[in-house]
Structures are given as C-alpha cells and as structure tokens.
Nucleic acid binder design. Structure first.
Lengths: 206, 206
DNA sequence: TATAATAGATGACAACTTGTCATCTGTCAA
DNA sequence: TTGACAGATGACAAGTTGTCATCTATTATA
C-alpha cells in the first residue's frame, strides 16, 4: 500500500501520479519499468516517489488494485444479468476481455499484466471473484451465484470451482495474447475447456 | 538458446558455468539475478558471458530446460508405473514434488521458478507433458496414456485435458510455496480440485 | 615454415539503475 | 516569534547492463 503521504496529496496531484504510473506500466511490464521514467513523467523529484510509495512494486500493485476494483463491478453486473449463472457470466467476461484487449493500443497496462502474470498479480485479479480473501467478501459474491446446476456440496467446493474457472479464463487470455492467436480460435479453445470442465474429465464418476 | 560458442566449450567449463547459473538463480528469481554475480562465481570475464548467452533470460531458460528434461523422464516412468492412468500419475508427481520442495534448502532453483512462474516458464514446464510442442512429441506421450476412462472424443480434447491437469498441479505447488500451507492441507485442496475436475462442475450435462 | 584467417577471450567503459539522506521549505500551534 | 513537524528536494554512492576495441590462440593455406 502507498504511504499515508500519498493519500494526503491533493486529488489532482494524485491523479497526475497515477497517470504517470499507468504510462510507464503500459510501456513495459513491472520488472522493466523504471522509477526514473515515472518521476520524469510526473515531474516530481525522485525523493518524492519514495515519500509516497515503498518501491516500484508498491506503486504497481496499487494501480492494479484500482483497475481490478473496476473489473469487479463489471463482473457483478454481468453475473446479475446472467441470473447467477457462473459459467455464462465467466464466458461473457472472457469474450469481453479478449475483444477489448485485441483493440490495438488500448489497455496496454492490462495487457502487460496478463503477459507477465505471476501468482501475486493473479491473486490481485482473483479479487474480482473472491474479494480480498475474507469470508464476508466471498459470501458477498457467492450469494449471487446460482448453485442449482453446480455439482458442489459446500462453500469450499464453490470456492475451488471459482478458482478453476478463473484459472482457465486467465490462461485463455494469456495464451491468446502471448501467441497472438486469432480471436475465434482462442474462444473456441476456451469453450472447449469450459465444456470439459462442465462435463468432467472422467467417464464413470462412480 | 545459448550461442554456439557455449556448446563449443570443453565439458568442465560448461559445467562450471551451469553451476554458477544454478547458484545465482537459486539465490533469487530471474528478474533479481545479476550477471555480475554469475561471472564472478564462474570466474570468467564479463564479456565472455555475452559470448555464450544472449542475455540473462537466455541462460535462465537453458538451465530450466535441462531440469525440465529430467522431470520429463520421471513423469514418463511414473505414467508407466501407473499403467497410463493420467490422474493417478499426476497425483503422484504432485505429491513427490511438494514433498521434495518442502525439504528446506534443496531445489531452491525450482522453488524460485514456481514462485515466479510466468507463462514463459510455465510453457517450459509444460514440455514435461507435451514435449516441445510438435505433433510427434505430443503423440509420443499421448500414446502412453490410457484413454479408456477419459471423457474425450479427440486428441485435441486430450491436449486440453492435459493442459487443465497441468494448470491445477502448478497452481497447487505455487499456492503451497507462496502461502506456506502445510503439506496435508495443500494436498487436500489438490485432491478436491482433481475430484471436481473428474466429476465435472455441472450437474446435468445435457 | 611463414603467414593469413578466424574464433574466442578480455576488461574498461558509457549509460543507465536504485534507494538514501542531509538539507530545505512551508504551515500550523503556542 | 518561535518551535515543531510534515513534506519536498536533488546530489550521491553503489550497483547494474551490454558493447567494443583490442588481445590471443588455433587452425588452414601457400
């Protein structure tokens, strides 16, 4: 988390900073990003950066958390529109994401995030589905999910189902971006995997 | 890939280099590793490093590919021992891996690889299951798999099944390492997810 | 044998990083 | 008026990386 000093800043200066962060983290992934570029862009002295943030990672994950928060709202909406159908909602989100990311220069920050997804970045993204990890946050989403058609016996199983779906979704987007797979082909693979997940990979369950 | 110059080196010097690489990449993950440390450890001039490798990544992925090749052999063995049962084989590999990684200071290189898994590193690991990506390599493994109990209609579906299993396995190991989850608990989650995969997440398939 | 050609070794170097810290500056409260 | 303190500032040490002109050794050729 940024230091208190950052939050004490006037709104416009905070915005300026955030824009500088987004610009640099859109240019290159986290590990290639340079604080020097950020301070140059934001026109603040180098020392100030360290007054506001612990380090590069701190700034990065703060920016990411903001964007994830926005995605979370969208996910909620879609889930509602699909009447709590988890699979349906995930499919639509994936399609939305892929199509949007394919649109050239836009969303470079997210593109870099996907292409350099580590478990820490993925954990942040998972907040879309699980909130910040607390039981209440999980409940808040899980209660909006229609469990009727899901083959689950408990909340723990629901949690794992969501983990699995998240995994497959991320992998699909990453794969599409990394190998520059055509849109339709990426979606085809995705739906195939989703279908496999639904049906199960084993013939005789019992 | 390392440059030809590297492969022209006498065996003992190559070994020296590889040990220096392993030492540095065991100390820290790829992005924090320093070429300076490597050349210091291997006692070669800085310029020589660039005579042998393109850059840090080049050296890293070469070392990783060697270790993955070893894992591939183990996987083949286990798959044979389990008479082609993919789930059984994956379970055993996962248990082996988790137990081994838990043993303190050993395998620090692999530990770092897991904790900083990117899609590029994951792709390398996937060679364990898919070979280098060619159709022949895939066939070579897939023909050893017993498809009787698998709910698949084609080789493409088998490919995706293996992707899914790999995904869940990696995630399990990463999760265990990152959150320092006790061994039994990690395995419990893993088996739960495997069970869900087997049975399917949906109640009525049709 | 003498010479040329080529592969490889070498380390100094420019051009960047990063995080720190002593020193300013401005704004309140007493 | 004077502290006190939060915050701003930029020079700095210590590190990094990739390059390149210059050696050196080995092998092929005349």
């Amino acid at each position: 988390m940024p230091k208190q000093t950052f939050f004490n800043l006037p709104e416009d200066k905070k915005d300026l900073l955030l824009h500088a962060l987004e610009k640099e983290f859109s240019r290159v992934p986290l590990f290639d990003a340079s604080i020097s570029n950020i301070v140059k862009e934001a026109n603040i002295p180098r020392g100030s950066f360290y007054q506001y943030f612990e380090d590069k990672e701190d700034a990065y994950f703060y920016l990411l958390s903001i964007q994830v928060e926005q995605k979370k709202t969208i996910f909620r909406q879609v889930l509602e529109e699909e009447n709590g159908d988890l699979f349906q909602a995930m499919s639509r989100i994936t399609e939305l994401t892929i199509v949007e990311l394919a649109k050239g220069e836009s969303l470079l920050f997210l593109k870099n995030a996907f292409l350099n997804m580590t478990h820490e970045i993925e954990n942040m993204f998972n907040r879309i589905f699980n909130g910040n990890g607390t039981a209440e946050q999980f409940k808040e989403i899980s209660c909006r999910i229609d469990k009727q058609n899901l083959n689950i016996k408990s909340d723990i199983e629901l949690y794992h189902v969501m983990q699995l779906l998240g995994m497959v979704t991320f992998r699909c987007v990453i794969n599409k971006l990394a190998k520059n797979i055509p849109l339709e082909q990426a979606l085809e693979s995705y739906h195939l995997e989703m279908q496999l997940l639904k049906q199960g990979l084993y013939k005789e369950t019992k």
